[in-house]
């Protein structure tokens, strides 16, 4: 990435073109495209936490849930006060409101990430995985019990603000942020902390701080992805953000190769398209996924799309 901004610009132009052509694209393809974009955001943000920083997290869907609910709360409860009762999707005011809602969702999820990041300081490996899993489940139970946001039945009537442009722009911004961060002198610290915490602190880095930053930033983008998801599906339920959703994101990151942004993007695209292609054999989908995961660990633990000879996952 010699000129990171040019990539960002290219992605935004692409989003703009797709958006302009969206009337002529088959709605089904548009839906698939939006699904791909949201999963790219989720996978790349989890990759910052689990891949680059080595904090294996099984609660990413929990951050997504916080963002989805917070963003929906902004458009549903604050929206009418700010832009009136009869919004027309696509208008300037609506898009401004949506932008604010996504930001709100991201910030709420970042706060949750901060909360999870702190116990991560004392835990590692499978214990950390379990605690993040527990956090995800706790978020789900809390949402189920929170009646103002629909409780167990979920929240309906979220305006359909998510467009292909928003999704492509968010995905591009996520990839840009994570990419630029981990290539900078500061960001090398994430990798150093993952490789060896004691050596990292001997190089003057604060491992605790890096982990908390990774969790907070990763959760922020997962929250925005949640906001996009809610305003795409127009209805969200707590059970839609359960453990198996987290696992889906984990599989994307593992398949792409921990810490390998390009591979993770490819895997997110592939794993979103695959179920669509496998629709005729839908009931075998999960069986295939899990066999893929097991086979990968046995035969190619560095990830399917990781072509570098060395890999963090196979370090001694």
């Amino acid at each position: 990435m010699r000129h990171p901004f040019s990539y960002l610009l290219l992605a935004l132009v692409l989003g703009g073109v797709l958006s302009a052509l969206s009337d002529r694209i088959d709605p089904y393809h548009l839906d698939v495209l939006i699904g791909v974009g949201i999963n790219v955001v989720l996978a790349v943000s989890l990759n910052l936490i689990a891949g680059h920083t080595g904090q294996f997290s099984l609660g990413h869907a929990g951050f997504m849930a916080v963002g989805a609910y917070a963003a929906a709360a902004v458009t549903i409860f604050l929206g009418p006060h700010l832009i009136g009762d009869a919004p027309s999707p696509g208008g300037l005011a609506e898009n401004a409101l949506f932008g604010a809602a996504l930001l709100g969702g991201g910030l709420a999820a970042a706060a949750a990430g901060l909360l999870v990041g702190i116990p991560s300081l004392r835990l590692r490996g499978d214990y950390l995985a379990l605690v993040t899993l527990g956090f995800g489940e706790i978020i789900r139970v809390l949402l189920q019990n929170f009646e103002p946001l629909g409780g167990a039945l979920g929240l309906n009537g979220i305006p359909a603000y998510t467009t292909v442009f928003w999704v492509v722009a968010t995905a591009a911004a996520t990839v840009f942020t994570v990419g630029c961060l981990v290539r900078s002198t500061y960001g090398l610290g994430f990798l150093a902390v993952r490789d060896d915490e004691i050596a990292a602190s001997a190089a003057g880095l604060d491992p605790a701080r890096y982990k908390v930053v990774a969790f907070t930033a990763g959760a922020f983008f997962a929250g925005i992805a949640g906001g996009l998801f809610g305003h795409f599906k127009m209805t969200i339920t707590p059970s839609g953000f359960d453990f198996s959703r987290s696992i889906e994101i984990v599989v994307m990151v593992i398949l792409g190769g921990l810490g390998n942004t390009f591979g993770v993007i490819l895997a997110a695209v592939l794993l979103t398209l695959l179920p669509e292609l496998l629709r005729p054999v839908a009931e075998y989908r999960l069986v295939l996924y899990s066999l893929l995961l097991i086979g990968l660990m046995l035969a190619r633990p560095q990830g399917l799309f990781n072509f570098r000879p060395r890999s963090p996952a196979s370090r001694a």
């Binding site: 075998y284 899990s290 097991i294 046995l298 996952a313």
Partner: peptide, 28 residues
């Protein structure tokens, strides 16, 4: 067994994979 001596994370991920496999195969 094929993962004996592999990093914990790989074994953990495999275990999650086996768990998903049993659940989805169970549903079938």
């Amino acid at each position: 067994r094929p993962l004996r001596g592999a990093p914990t994370l790989n074994v953990l991920i495999t275990a999650i994979g086996v768990s998903c496999l049993l659940q989805s195969a169970g549903q079938l």
